[in-house]
């Protein structure tokens, strides 16, 4: 898999490149600012972009803006956005674009998650494969303090919902909760019914539907 990394801290950029190479990905470019990211994507046509939100020259959200611009031009490009802080606002911008343009996988993770190297490499693979990976922290924010239809879910169903929103597949949810895949499928069917969401075979669509629901209800 061909990866472009955009991260302004040299320490992290080199580390990320080493990590992804170690898991068999090929890092075709590692750049330090937003214009270089756009140039690198044009030159390399990668399978997935891993980008920091905050980069030079303005050190605000240039990375995120560059990613949104890239996705607008080529919707099939898979992007994994990393940040020191996760905010619903940034997640919303990524997801809204994905919902309206469709297209490649999308991910939004706290940088903290890089430490769990195997899971992080999995996330890159999932996004590159068209899936959705949303940080548990964002999901927690979306689920927290919510009432109404969510209150009708059982605690187990809420757990499953959180994992679905994070972009996990049925198999991954089953592993995380130590239950069978069939049980997970049953929970998900029940959740979708309670939230009036259309049943979807495709993990990616299902995740988007759940996230859209969670955000719309805030």
């Amino acid at each position: 898999m061909r990866v472009v990394i955009a991260e302004d801290s040299v320490l992290l950029r080199e580390g990320l490149a080493g990590l992804l190479e170690r898991f068999g990905h090929s890092v075709v470019a590692a750049v330090g600012d937003a214009p270089a990211l756009i140039a690198a994507v044009a030159a390399q046509d990668p399978d997935v972009v891993v980008a920091d939100v905050r980069m030079p020259p303005g050190f605000s959200d240039e990375g995120l803006r560059a990613v949104l611009e890239l996705r607008a031009a080529r919707p099939a490009l898979a992007v994994l956005v990393l940040s020191q802080y996760v905010e619903q606002t940034y997640a919303a911008e990524l997801l809204d674009q994905t919902r309206s343009f469709g297209g490649g996988g999308v991910g939004y993770l706290l940088k903290d998650r890089i430490g769990d190297v195997a899971q992080f490499a999995d996330a890159v693979t999932t996004v590159a494969g068209g899936g959705t990976v949303i940080d548990a922290e964002v999901v927690r924010q979306l689920l927290r303090g919510r009432r109404d239809p969510l209150a009708r879910l059982t605690p187990r169903e809420r757990e499953v919902l959180a994992l679905v929103a994070e972009g996990r597949s049925n198999a991954a949810i089953a592993r995380a909760l130590f239950v069978s895949e069939a049980a997970v499928a049953k929970h998900i069917a029940s959740i979708l019914a309670k939230l009036d969401l259309p049943p979807a075979a495709d993990d990616h669509r299902r995740v988007l539907a759940v996230l859209t629901y969670l955000r719309a209800a805030v």
């Binding site: 320490l11 992290l12 990590l19 905050r54 903290d112 430490g115 190297v117 195997a118």
Partner: peptide, 24 residues
């Protein structure tokens, strides 16, 4: 905020990543 972001935070992320890689 800028100093913490560019300094301590990045180093802690790098540290955590190196520990993760070492664990492999």
């Amino acid at each position: 905020e800028r100093d913490l972001h560019d300094g301590a935070q990045q180093r802690l992320v790098a540290l955590s990543m190196k520990l993760g890689l070492a664990g492999l």
